Lab assay of single mutants.
Amino acid sequence: SISSRVKSKRIQLGLNQAELAQKVGTTQQSIEQLENGKTKRPRFLPELASALGVSVDWLLN
């Protein structure tokens, strides 16, 4: 799922939720909701993929 991929990649990069949120241009709460499965397809998906160094396709599939 996107939530597990985001969380595992974030941890692999040594980032906390607030640091990832800053790179993406969103809030820590938005990252938390995404990782908890409350958000399925965030509006900041391209920025998120870029910050994590992955493709949008990788996040979604």
Rank of each mutant, 00 (worst) to 15 (best):
R43Q: 12
V24S: 08
T39P: 09
S50I: 14
Q33V: 07
V54T: 08
S30W: 15
R41S: 12
K23N: 06
Q28S: 10
E32K: 12
Q33L: 14
R43M: 12
I31V: 06
G14I: 02
I2N: 02
F44L: 06
V56W: 07
G37E: 06
E32G: 06
G25R: 06
Q28G: 06
N36K: 11
Q28V: 15
S3W: 08
Q33H: 12
L60K: 07
L48R: 00
A21D: 01
E35F: 02
P46I: 13
L45R: 02
V54L: 04
N36I: 10
V54K: 01
E35Y: 02
A49G: 04
E32V: 12
S30K: 13
L20K: 01
Q17D: 03
D57G: 11
V56G: 04
E35W: 02
R5E: 02
A49P: 00
L60V: 11
S30P: 02
A49M: 03
S55F: 04
R5S: 04
N61I: 09
V6W: 00
K38W: 15
N16D: 11
L15V: 05
F44G: 04
P46A: 14
L13P: 00
V54W: 03
A21L: 01
S3D: 06
L34D: 01
Q28W: 11
I31Y: 02
S50V: 13
L45A: 06
Q28Y: 09
D57M: 11
W58I: 02
G14W: 03
S50A: 14
T26Y: 04
S1M: 10
E35H: 01
R10G: 00
G37K: 05
G53M: 07
Q17T: 15
T27H: 07
V24N: 02
A49K: 01
N36T: 11
E47R: 14
Q33S: 14
E47A: 14
L60E: 07
P46W: 13
P46M: 13
G14P: 00
R43V: 12
I31C: 03
R41P: 08
Q17N: 04
G25S: 05
W58K: 02
Q22K: 13
L59M: 04
L48T: 02
G14R: 07
G53V: 15
A49L: 04
V6I: 10
A18F: 13
K23T: 08
K40E: 13
Q29T: 11
T39Y: 13
G14E: 05
E47G: 08
L59K: 00
L13M: 11
V24I: 11
L34M: 06
V24D: 01
A49V: 04
P46G: 11
R5G: 03
E19F: 04
A18G: 09
L59W: 02
Q33Y: 11
S30E: 15
G14D: 05
Q28L: 15
S30F: 14
A51F: 08
V54N: 00
Q33F: 12
T39D: 11
N36G: 10
K9Q: 09
V24T: 09
Q22V: 11
E47C: 09
V54P: 00
K9T: 09
V56Q: 09
K9S: 07
R10V: 01
T39H: 11
Q28F: 09
D57R: 12
Q22I: 12
Q29N: 11
D57P: 07
S8G: 09
E32L: 09
A21S: 05
Q12A: 13
K23V: 10
E19P: 00
S50E: 14
A51N: 04
R41H: 13
S55E: 09
S1R: 09
V54Q: 03
N36C: 09
R5T: 05
L60S: 07
D57A: 13
Q12R: 09
S8L: 15
T27F: 05
S8H: 14
W58Q: 03
G37S: 06
S3N: 07
A18S: 13
Q22L: 13
R5W: 06
I11W: 07
I31H: 02
K40G: 11
T27N: 09
R41C: 15
F44V: 03
K7E: 07
Q22G: 09
K7N: 05
F44E: 04
R5D: 01
A21R: 02
K7I: 11
R41W: 15
S55L: 06
L13G: 03
R5L: 08
V24Y: 01
K40H: 14
S50D: 12
E47H: 09
S30G: 10
T27M: 05
A18R: 15
Q28E: 12
S8Q: 14
A18T: 11
V24L: 08
A21G: 05
L52E: 00
T27Q: 06
G14S: 06
L60T: 10
S1K: 09
E35S: 02
T39A: 10
E47K: 11
R5P: 02
G14K: 07
R5A: 08
E47T: 09
L48A: 02
T27K: 07
R5H: 03
V56I: 14
Q29E: 14
S30Y: 15
L59F: 06
A18H: 12
R10Q: 01
R10N: 00
L52P: 00
K9R: 15
P42T: 09
R10I: 04
E35T: 02
K7G: 03
R41T: 13
L34C: 04
S55I: 04
I2L: 15
L52S: 02
T39V: 14
S55T: 15
L48G: 00
S30L: 13
V24W: 03
Q22A: 15
V6D: 00
G37N: 07
V56T: 09
L52R: 00
S55W: 04
A51M: 06
I11T: 09
A21N: 02
E35L: 03
R43N: 13
L59Q: 00
N61L: 09
S30C: 15
P46T: 12
E19I: 05
S4D: 14
I11S: 08
A18L: 13
K23A: 11
K38Y: 15
N36Q: 12
I31L: 07
T39N: 13
I2Q: 03
K40A: 13
T26N: 03
K40Q: 13
L60N: 07
S30A: 15
A49N: 00
P42F: 15
N36M: 12
S55N: 08
P42M: 10
V54S: 03
T39R: 09
K9I: 11
I2C: 08
N16Y: 03
I2G: 03
K7Y: 08
S8W: 15
S30N: 13
S8F: 15
V6H: 01
G14Y: 05
P46D: 11
E32R: 12
L34P: 02
